[in-house]
Computed example of a mutant assay.
Amino acid sequence: MNQKIICYDEDLGVEAYSFTGVSQNFPNHFHDYYVVGLIEEGERRMIVNNQEYTLEPGDLLTFNPYDNHSCEGINGSRLTYRCINLKKEIFLPFSGTEFPRFLSPMQAQTDLAEDFQQLHCAIRNESEAEAKETLFILFIEELLQKYSQETNLAAVNDKEPITMICEYLETHYDQKITLDQLCQLVHLNKHSLVRQFTREKGITPYRYLETYRIVKAKELLEQGCSLIEIADRTGFYDQSHFTNYFSRFIGLTPNQYRKIFVRGNEE
């Protein structure tokens, strides 16, 4: 059975995903938020920031914002997986002025798996706000204590040419951008630019642009914009091009993703 269930919890401000029996492979990409997820069934080969991991049931995933990652099934194994997506600001009450950084993207056979399942079920079942908040606070505090360190995300990347390229891509993502433009920006040839960017980010400039366009598209979906408008505003050729990319990167169609925010917009 291939099933995908998503919901948005307004009390906590988090998205919750449940994938059952999924065979889809995910290309190299990143998110602008934290992801915490649990493998419940299936084995996967995952690459995060150019390092390979093998995922098994009971492993907890902890992605930092802008950690590039890809994954694929092993020997036809189907994935059953649940996760929550957490905006950076959610962590500030726990960590003060600094954003935390998980030291590893995988916590093998962690004893926090049961606590995470309990929290995820509370979100899925729309439990009382106070009960969910208590579970959330206890889980996040223990997660940070075990697996993170504090860091200023804005200061992580101190390599000026790469920073300039990222800023340019994030500013002009709705336009057609060529390697020639980026080369002129940082005064590097194409070979040096692609090699240096990929070594630093673990992802090519073009894939970085694609991923950032998806990040902005998600924001517009949350606002209820039409697919045609979103495609136009995020630099995709047309609605079909946008839908194909979104499904590859997120594992859901744009309409499936937008539905989790419909109730909140109506209210």
Score class of each variant (00 low, 15 high):
N2G: 03
K4E: 01
I5E: 12
D9Q: 08
E10P: 07
D11W: 05
G21E: 04
S23W: 08
I39L: 02
E40G: 05
R45H: 10
E52G: 02
L55M: 06
E56Y: 08
P57R: 14
P57E: 04
T62M: 11
P65M: 05
P65G: 03
N68P: 15
H69E: 02
I74C: 08
N75R: 15
S77M: 11
I84C: 04
E89T: 03
G96S: 05
P100V: 10
S104N: 13
P105R: 13
M106D: 03
E114K: 13
L119A: 00
R124G: 02
R124P: 00
E126S: 10
S127Y: 15
S127C: 13
A129H: 14
A129E: 13
K132I: 07
E133T: 15
T134S: 14
L135S: 05
F139L: 08
E141Q: 07
L143E: 00
K146W: 03
S148A: 12
Q149F: 14
E150A: 14
V156N: 12
V156Y: 04
C166Q: 13
L169A: 05
E170P: 05
T171P: 01
Y173C: 06
D174W: 04
Q175Y: 02
D180Y: 00
Q181D: 04
Q184L: 01
H187I: 01
H191F: 06
H191Q: 08
S192V: 03
T198I: 07
E200Q: 15
K201R: 15
I203W: 02
K216P: 02
A217N: 06
K218D: 02
E219T: 04
L220Q: 09
S226V: 07
I228F: 09
I228G: 13
I228H: 12
E229Y: 10
G235M: 01
F236H: 09
Q239A: 03
H241G: 01
T243D: 02
Y245D: 08
S247E: 15
S247C: 04
R248N: 14
I250Y: 01
I250M: 10
L252M: 14
L252K: 12
P254R: 01
P254C: 10
P254N: 06
N255T: 15
N255C: 10
V262Y: 11
V262W: 08
V262T: 12
